[in-house]
Amino acid sequence: MLTADQKKELEATIQQFVGKPIGPAATSRDAVNEAMILQWCDAMGDTNPVYQDRAVAEKSVHGGIVAPPMMLDAWTMQGWDMHKGYDEPTNEEQRLHKILTDAGYTGVLGTNTEQEFDRYLRIGDEVTAETIIEGISEEKATGAGIGYFITTKTTFSDAAGAQVGWMNFRVLKFIPKEAPQAASDSGGGAAEAYVPARIKPPMGHDNAWWWNEVAAGRITVQRCKGCQQLRHPPRPMCPGCRSMEWDSIEISGRGTLHTFTVIHYPQFPGYEFPICAALVDLEEGVRMVSDVMDCKPEDLKIGMKLKAYIHEDDDGFKLPLFRPSE
């Protein structure tokens, strides 16, 4: 597992690959030919005669045998040599994968492809493929584990240089869920392992004090010194009397549920789903957004009584949450 700093460095390194070609353009080992088409059709169970029966194909709109469009990327595949690149990278894509593998993202899953075809390929066509690394996602939590989606875009052209089609290919490079976590502190004083955590508030003049109060064990709301009006979330001026003088009071923590939503998707790293997000009417007369814990989603009812408490995440971040009360 990586420390937060190592992770930042890793992300900076991999993002440098975005937009880069993986290497020089690659031309097909063999020109488009009937033998390969037949093998592909056998494997796929495709019996369309325009791919394999000359007599039928000649009478068709194509005037001769054409390659199945879906076969496009098969023509420029590297063959058996491709496997060597996983240990000793021979192109930028493999180099990117190796960096992630070495950082613990050992798993790889093809997730999806998109293809578009400009024309059918004919016998004798030579296909050239140019591939770029089009994008790398931010870190995602998936069923398979935490990882990055890498998208490559390949443009295919013929001997005359005209585009015949393109393909986007997306893989997930991930830390397999089953993989043993950094279990023991063998190194002595090893840096803390990186675990995804909830998004933290940025700390500015207008809000840091409130979070500092929470960290110190107090849930407060802001109070105008001019007219005593309570307000939440905090802001630098009172909308009632325009005073910029304020203090705060500690709340009782008692409130009722004004409205809610049970959040199922999308599932961001650092949160446990589903989330019972709540808008709470505090007995002091202001509202506060938080989550209701220790409550089944189906038990949420507008008007139910709630009580606030301060929760501490594993990384030490504290925030006020609510649970049902009588």
């Binding site: 909830r198 998004i199 933290k200 508030p201 940025p202 500015g204 207008d206 809000n207 979330p233 959040i263 961001f268 949160y271 989330i275 997000a277 957004v289 938080s290 989550d291 971040f317 925030l319």
Partner: peptide, 11 residues
Amino acid sequence: IHWSWYMPFGM
């Protein structure tokens, strides 16, 4: 800061 009143709670 406005969004930060919601983000930590998963909204």
